[in-house]
Design a protein around this nucleic acid. Structure first.
Lengths: 345, 345
DNA sequence: CTGTTAGCGCGTTCAT
DNA sequence: ATGAACGCGCTAACAG
């Protein structure tokens, strides 16, 4: 009695049962052009009949290529990143790629470690939002030089020459500020993010630019920097703003948590929003549409950012012509969402 | 002139440079017992000196084992799941595992497809929160039988015999309801989740049990089922509750979005929260602590759920004794978080 | 258009 | 305690 090995069906098995060579099977399975329509059909039928699937590991081993995209973000459970990743996964899935996710926890060291791992495991490509701690970019350049396509999203330093998907934070903030000015605000404050991060610098710059453009003075004491734009920090700085005279009649916040905090602190002190002070946030988080009044904000296109990041990455992976390019930058549209907290009409 | 191939260093290279065989190197690298302390030391030094790393693909190819955990969830950008995944990643990372993430989009078909993929790519294990559509579990049983450890989290049907990490939804809801009763509520409503999902059924059951335990009547017209517990749906059913007489003096909501909606609708109609109507939510989402008054809720230990899921999965992967077990269930503690929306003292 | 041949880098016998 | 030799399943020259 032969022992019935319940072992995996291989390319060899179909080759044998069809009196063809393994290479032919392999070629059919990888859509090689030089294959007759007829054998193509026969092979595909047999493959289905026998329920065969390529062993992806063996395949990667041989070709030194995988279908796996490494994604590195600071933390997965931050709304913005989870939306981006959702977009990446959705696009990648339909293109037959898997995504492997890592959290840098905003640590430069951990980020390097992960990148090194990805390099030695033949990741098809890497999508990354650099850690806050990251100020040098040689590890990114290194993986890029090792012929692994790289796309950076959101926090993309200008020093870093690599493909990027970003929003125009400067312009978004400029638009938000201009909107408040158009609502009649003349003494506008800004709750800013950590100024060691470029996107928050840009938001501050956009804010200032709008003021000067409309010939309004920039008051440094109305610009409050925070460490991480948390709700709690927001309350502290909002309290400080509340005590400045004259009272700011508008606040541009670098995210929705601080906007929510400002809204709460001001309302608790009987300042009417938006007539006495108008408020606008940034990111379009769920809370912004749940609070009363709803908070105006800038939609940051997070899901779309992930979609596009995956798209240009896969383009670079699959299209050799694209590899010739140094890099490409995609700037996504942002959308001003005007709600009760700033609408005086 | 020799061509300097910048090719990967292999186990062979260190073998040669040390006059040892490749098997010895391999053994050192996998902590084989039958190796002298001395050669162990020598090899390890050389490995470090040459900056060598095992090729994980070749290694997987040979051993039919990977260090990759497949994670399937409905959507990544739902707060609960992003927290769970964050916990999984954190634990897995420190144990040397990578996580590959998929979204089922609550589709049974897509879930099957992913699972099949995972099976043919030798995933070390799988962590899954089944899709809403999933009513049959043969695909899960199949992968489990194929010797791939499986852990289910959150939505774990009782029919499904597999390792699980869950919270006791029944008890959590019971506690939440009891709390309202202790605050003096006697005519309590429930905004329920989709009753085709077990966890939401359990929350409804826990709600009913608390009422009967305290000898309060269960009024069916005060139980409002929703499709997906969205904020918008919450507003609709809250409006309906507002119009019922007598007015409910307490509302137990199956999540925080509907609790936020109830809060808003009731307050807009000048019902004082919590004195006229007390409200409690479920999940401890950020909004619950930002609204005014803050919403009482039940913390669902999402991050910890991920941590534990990864832990018991890796245990089953690495410890053969654990494989002998049919399965294990872990029930996590939930914590009642009492805030302004229900605290009448 | 198709077959033949030769490994990829590693883990694992079976020797010694 | 160590080495020699084999082959996992597949792809990619090179032929023909």
């Amino acid at each position: 009695m032969k022992k019935e090995e319940a072992s995996r069906i291989t390319i060899k098995d179909i080759a044998k049962s069809l009196n063809l060579s393994t290479s032919t099977i392999s070629r059919v399975l990888s859509n090689h052009p030089a294959i007759s329509e007829n054998t193509k059909k026969i092979v595909k039928e047999k493959v289905k009949e026998m329920g065969f699937h390529l062993d992806p590991i063996a395949s990667s081993f041989r070709s030194k290529k995988t279908k796996s995209i490494g994604v590195i973000c600071p933390r997965i459970d931050i709304e913005f990143h989870s939306k981006v990743i959702s977009g990446i996964e959705e696009y990648a899935y339909h293109r037959g790629y898997q995504i492997t996710i890592f959290q840098s926890q905003d640590s430069y060291h951990r980020e390097r470690e992960i990148l090194h791992m990805l390099e030695t495991s033949f990741a098809a490509g890497v999508i990354i939002c650099p850690a806050l701690e990251t100020k040098r970019y040689d590890h990114l350049k290194k993986i890029s030089k090792s012929n692994t396509p790289l796309v950076v999203y959101d926090r993309a330093s200008e020093q870093l020459k690599a493909s990027k998907v970003i929003i125009n934070d400067f312009e978004a903030s400029f638009k938000a500020t201009s909107h408040l000015i158009q609502q009649g605000c003349k003494n506008i404050a800004h709750i800013a993010g950590n100024q060691s991060t470029e996107i928050f610098k840009s938001r501050l710059e956009g804010f200032k630019k709008a003021l000067t453009q409309y010939h309004l003075p920039v008051h440094e004491h109305l610009i409050k920097e925070t460490k991480n734009l948390s709700y709690e920090e927001g309350k502290v700085v909002a309290q400080a703003l509340l005590e400045s005279t004259p009272l700011p009649d508008g606040i541009v916040c670098a995210n929705d948590y601080t906007a929510a905090a400002a809204l709460k602190v001001f309302r608790n002190n009987n300042i009417d929003i938006p007539t006495q002070t108008a408020i606008i946030g940034f990111s379009n988080y769920p809370i912004s549409s749940i609070l009363e009044p709803q908070i105006s904000t800038v939609d940051d296109s997070a899901y779309e950012m992930g979609l596009v990041a995956a798209k240009i990455l896969i383009q670079q992976i699959e299209d050799k012509d694209m590899r010739a390019l140094e890099y490409q930058e995609v700037i996504l549209k942002t959308k001003l969402i005007i709600r009760g907290s700033s609408n005086r009409n």
